[in-house]
Design a protein around this nucleic acid. Sequence first.
DNA 1: AAAAAAC
Length: 478
Amino acid sequence: MTHSFSNLSLAEPLARAVAELGYESMTPIQEQAIPVVLQGKDVMGAAQTGTGKTAAFALPLLQRMLKHENSSTSPARHPVRALVLLPTRELADQVAQAIKAYAKYTNLRAAVVFGGMDMKPQTLELKKGVEVLVATPGRLLDHIEAKNAVLNQVEYVVLDEADRMLDIGFLPDLQRILSYLPKQRITLLFSATFSPEIKRLANSYLQDPVTIEVARSNATASTVEQHFYSVNPDDKRRALHQVLRQRGIKQAFVFVNSKLGCARLARSLEREGLKTTALHGDKSQDERLKALESFKSGEVDLLVCTDVAARGLDIKDVPAVFNFDVPFNAEDYVHRIGRTGRAGASGLAVSFAGGGNDVRLVADIEKLIKTKIELEPLEFEEDTPKIRDQGRINDGRRAWRDAGETGDPRDVLDAPPARAPRPQRTSHAPRDPFFDQPYQAPANDAAPAWEAAARSPGSRSISANIKPKRKVAALFKS
DNA sequence: AAAAAAC
């Protein structure tokens, strides 16, 4: 059979691990990407989630690392040869576990570093030497700065969820990390969604790349049944109860647009008798792992979450995804509903469109996935409990009003206080030239020049660079 | 608009 892993002539230790994991036939992305990566080409890979992307890049990389010894004469005995970057901690953990399983019978070592955890164990592991390093950007920069991780011999870089890694929130950190790597290297980019702008940007990081598009990019899995219900924002919780019951849904992701809304919704649903946990970025890493674990084990039925859980998380048999809020970005819709209907299973995606911009957001989604969306009315049944919000459940401002005696909204939440805003890095070199421009205090109280620039026509392309500079200015002033 | 990512 041509589609079988056994036809790949993988090195024996890899073949053994693959067999042990029960992998037999390759998925389309694996079939297309593995030979290309084996040849040492740069790749831009667009594939739906749940199609085996991790194995598609990790197996050929490990194979090459086994075949081609590190030719460097550096004293480092175990330099990092492959670097895999991801946008969330949970994803980094998940991908690292997969790679460790593939590399189990080789002498190649893999490690993962991400924030929210003690530095020390990670440092120890790095000092012992690892060939494959999986990381989130912030913590990796810390390790680079502390000289725990030396990346000057990296041969392979993988950006998973590449479109997120290249977006404005991550780009500065990403650029710094890339500046520590040898120019001569193999770069692989993977994501389910690629906007045209991101595609252009991505291409500037690739040399003569091979584009692999398994399904049309931005496509949703055909196995996922999608519904959009028109619901008064105050009735969304009631609608959720009803759909869960009507369809007999056992377990679901429930996506909410804000951390505050997430914590509040989870608490409400819990009170209403549903076994629920919340997952968002203001929880401690320990709580985040516990939340995910309790969902995986079936201890809870509903995982109410922000977009921290939108991408890549591979949990078997999630029957349904709810968009309690329509996501702000159409791309996130594709990623969110990709949590269900994985690996050919059937799935259900139910979105509630209510107030605000929802009509426009739904139109954006329609355009992106190139599928007509019907907004369906939702008739409430008599025996659905009459739950009604006094205000929008996901309106953060309301939580402040409800904050109880102390006036602190955290009193009504299970979330720990939010992290302080991240100060700008100052010591990582080399730096983005834009950040190196000394801050010019505006004369008297006139608006700084960049404000006018940001408003002037044609400045759209640089406005993204302008915002961080303002923060730098704020730091200098205080 | 929001979320994510560091001590």
